[in-house]
Amino acid sequence: MENKQKKIVLTGGGSAGHVTPNLALVPELLQHGIDVHYIGTDDGIEKTLVHDIPFHAISAGKMRRYASVKNITDIFKIFKGTKESKRILKGLKPDLVFAKGGFVSVPVVWAASKLKIPVILHESDYTPGLANRLCIKKAQKICLSFDTADARSERSILTGSPIRKDILDGDRAAGLASLSFSGDKPVLLIMGGSLGAQAINDAVDAALDTLTQRYDIVHLRGKGKLNPGLEGSDSYRQYEYMEDGLPDVFAAADIALSRSGANAIFEFLALKLPALLVPLPLSASRGDQILNAGYFEKRGYAHVLEQENLNALALVQALDALWEQKDEMVSVMGNSKEADGTSNVLNVIFENIGVQ
């Protein structure tokens, strides 16, 4: 009797951080002969990012942490999305649903639970977001990126966060050549997330004369945030963002300056790239980046500079301190259990669907 092909549904969306870890799993899943499908929304970023596997669209509401009439109307969207998910899952009959978070995952997980389809959740941040909190009780396993008290519960397992394999395949010489850097000075990579980080950009601009004496700098400033007044330096390259060639630029970098979103910092960990993290402040977030950064600093993977303390002088001093401890940090990161998040998560999936 021929073995039935295994089938998995991936879900997650609303931001790239809820999609790219899922996509990091796809090549290996396909290589193992698994039929992979994605459930997302038609108007979410997942629709534009998901390629090469079937995509199924549903409705999804968003529950906000503040009073809003949309919290009422979006409840109906969640129930509509659950009904749509149930119909899709009944047709697909997957062996497993893997949910990465974001509010599109809520109706999918709820529908899977009603249909008795096993669910694995993954949480990237130090503490779970609201969508995952609404799904936790319905999951058989919860993969965690951070070694918190929750990671030692019966259903939880410390995995780290999945990252794209191509990020690890960069070539330093190619990166230096693409940036027209000689390699004589250390390369500082600066990035502030998909939208950029104005506070980081402003501090870098103010300190640039000093920084370019020490480093060759590649700066991903965010959409619409280029500074035309900074053109012309042999030691400074600025981009809004970078789609092609980023693995080579990562390979060329010696240290990084960044926000502390989970995807970015776990890429740094896998690359063994020491970073100075400037977390998004509590006034602009639920505080997850502050907790992420604190954990990485405690583990010896990064240094932290709070945004309220960020200025030109503090930035230069903090980057110099990072450079002084670079070699020690690279060694610590090389011994991390969380660094190989992709393999760790795949092992949990394979174990739960009986794939060798």
Rank of each mutant, 00 (worst) to 15 (best):
I136L: 14
I120S: 07
L130V: 15
G129E: 05
I136Q: 05
L134D: 04
K141Y: 13
A131R: 06
F146E: 00
K138W: 10
D125Q: 08
T148C: 08
F146C: 00
G129I: 05
D150R: 13
D150T: 12
I142V: 15
L144K: 01
C143Y: 05
T127R: 08
K137W: 14
L144Q: 00
I136E: 02
E123V: 02
L130R: 10
K141L: 11
K141D: 11
I142C: 08
I142S: 06
C135Y: 11
A131W: 13
T148Q: 04
Y126T: 00
T148M: 05
A139W: 03
R133V: 04
H122S: 11
T148N: 04
Q140P: 02
T127K: 05
K138M: 15
K137I: 07
G129Y: 06
D147V: 06
A149M: 12
D147W: 10
A149C: 09
S124E: 15
G129W: 08
C143V: 01
I136H: 07
A139K: 01
G129N: 04
P128R: 00
D147Y: 09
C135P: 09
F146P: 00
S124R: 09
C143H: 02
C135Q: 12
T127N: 08
K141M: 10
L144S: 00
D147H: 11
I142T: 08
D150G: 06
H122F: 11
D150E: 15
D150M: 15
H122P: 06
T127G: 09
C143G: 01
A131F: 14
C135I: 09
I142G: 06
I136W: 08
L144W: 01
C135R: 10
K138L: 10
T148G: 05
I136N: 03
C143D: 03
A149W: 10
K138A: 10
L134V: 06
K138I: 05
Y126G: 01
G129P: 01
T127D: 13
H122K: 07
D150S: 14
E123R: 03
S145A: 05
C135M: 15
L130Q: 09
I136R: 14
A149E: 15
S124H: 11
S145G: 05
A139L: 07
S124K: 06
I142W: 10
Q140L: 12
G129V: 06
A139R: 02
L144D: 00
A131M: 13
A149Q: 12
G129S: 02
A131N: 11
